[in-house]
């Protein structure tokens, strides 16, 4: 059941990325280009996502357990360390260069093209390297 739920959620998530325009690196990079062809659309993606997730999480926080698992895996860390800030800073550079964050990168794989395959393959290597540090 966990995997079936995850498959459907992945599909819904990807559909949201498509509708919102997050799968278009040109649009993402234009959002980040305040002094050029600025397209503020992606701010609305963030607002829309939080407008649903924040109240949704609030409801779930009062529940004992999820439907298909024994407990909720809410993150517990609260420390602000160098890995968090350094990692986020590095991630932002990559996001700016390619206009792709990990979710859209995987979604765009099925649209084909050598470029996205190169991006995703390198991204997976980057994850492995960071997690082994």
């Amino acid at each position: 059941m966990n995997s079936l739920a995850a498959l459907l959620v992945g599909l819904i998530f990807g559909t949201g990325l498509i509708i919102s325009g997050m799968v278009n690196p040109a649009k993402v990079q234009n959002f980040l280009d305040v002094f050029g062809h600025w397209d503020p659309s992606l701010a609305f993606v963030m607002i829309g996502a939080i407008a649903v997730t924040l109240p949704g999480y609030k409801v779930l926080k009062n529940r004992q357990k999820p439907l298909f698992d024994v407990s909720f895996s809410w993150p517990t860390r609260t420390d602000l360390d160098g890995r968090l800030i350094g990692g986020a800073a590095i991630f932002g550079i990559g996001w700016g260069l390619g206009g792709l964050c990990p979710g859209p990168a995987l979604t765009v794989l099925s649209a084909g093209g050598l470029g996205i395959i190169l991006f995703v393959a390198a991204m997976l290597v980057g994850v492995i390297v960071a997690r082994n540090l």
Binding site: G16, G48, A49, F68, D69
Partner: peptide, 21 residues
């Protein structure tokens, strides 16, 4: 469209927590 797409992303986030935690 971006707001609506974002809301769909949010729905997915809530569903993954509700089902698999």
């Amino acid at each position: 469209l971006s707001f609506f797409g974002g809301a769909v992303i949010g729905l997915a986030a809530v569903l993954l927590m509700a089902t698999n935690g």
